[in-house]
């Protein structure tokens, strides 16, 4: 492998990881844009999503050593798995909002944030007690087709992640920019009181933000499994922190910023692991988080929502 090949490989790996981080970062950004709340439960909604995906694949009879699916069967299984995973994660997000966060909406101080930590911890431990501490094999329905581009390898799973995340992000952008609900969402992010007075049902907007963000996190969780071929109860934490960094890097509250930030973090992880060491990847990403927050708290692209106080 030439150096150029190695770099190309890092770009392939980094953009796939980055697409996943971007999906997760969108959930942080949607909720933060509207509620100014760092939603720590999002970390583990992502993790639960990957287990829902695992369950769906097993339900479809996809086993680690079973023959790969092809054609319509493959597409059908993928679409159904993504749909159910996203629906289930989205509903989980809505339940969290409704049960644990809405009663605290008008409480000042860190109460709501502390609650999201509690919820996150509950999900974490429920999964730990339910499925155990060992990492679980994540079967892939994808045939092991790969393309050689010079010395670099592009596998079907990366192509799948790219396509799926492009579709999802495109869908979200369309929703936020061009639908009535999306407009209500942007208005609420600017000024919830004014939006309410103009007839926006703020409760519905908030529920929608949680649903969409959590559904995207679920899709991200499923991609995590397909990418690494395993899942575990611990994945939410580090992945969540990286995705949060992505949201901050792109300017938290800023939807396109989260997407770009996600891809950037993915690339930084891939190249950082290559140049330095994978063991230090989190240290690098965390240092970026601190540097961005300290020197450019609005992120690379600024916040769309003004600073409500």
């Amino acid at each position: 492998m030439t150096t150029a090949d190695v770099y190309l490989q890092q770009v392939i790996n980094g953009t796939s990881l980055g697409a996943m981080y971007a999906l997760l970062a969108l959930g942080f950004t949607l909720v933060y844009g509207i509620l100014e709340l760092i939603n720590f439960s999002h970390f583990n909604v992502f993790m639960v999503g990957s287990f829902v995906g695992l369950g769906m694949l097993e339900l479809f009879g996809v086993e680690p050593n079973a023959a790969a699916l092809t054609g319509f069967a493959l597409i059908g299984v993928l679409v159904a798995t993504f749909a159910v995973t996203m629906l289930a994660s989205g509903l989980l997000g809505v339940v969290i909002e409704r049960v644990a966060l809405r009663p605290l909406r008008n409480v000042k101080g860190p109460a709501a944030m502390i609650t999201t930590i509690g919820v996150s911890y509950i999900l974490f431990n429920l999964v730990l007690l339910g499925v155990g501490a060992d990492a679980k094999n994540f079967p892939s329905p994808l045939p092991s087709i790969s393309f050689a581009i010079g010395g670099a390898v592009l596998r079907l799973r990366e192509i799948l992640i790219w396509i799926a995340s492009l579709l999802l992000m495109g869908g979200l952008t369309y929703f936020v920019q061009f639908t009535k609900m999306g407009k209500a969402m942007r208005a609420t992010a600017q000024d919830p009181d004014a939006a309410r007075m103009m007839g926006v049902e703020v409760d519905r907007v908030i529920i929608m933000a949680f649903f969409l963000g959590s559904a995207l996190a679920g899709a991200g969780g499923l991609m995590f499994g397909l990418y690494y071929n395993l899942t575990s109860y611990v994945i939410g934490f580090t992945t969540g922190l990286r995705a949060f960094t992505a949201a901050v890097l792109g300017g938290i509250g800023n939807v396109p910023g989260a997407m770009v930030g996600g891809v950037l973090i993915g690339l930084i992880e891939a190249f950082g692991s290559y140049w330095i060491s994978a063991a230090w990847a989190d240290v690098i990403i965390f240092s970026i988080l601190v540097l961005v927050l300290v020197f450019k708290p609005a992120g690379l692209f600024g916040r769309l929502a003004p600073n409500k106080s």
Partner: peptide, 11 residues
């Protein structure tokens, strides 16, 4: 379940 209980206590 200690940690689960901790999470529940927090919420």
């Amino acid at each position: 379940s200690t940690e689960l209980i901790f999470g529940i206590i927090l919420v």
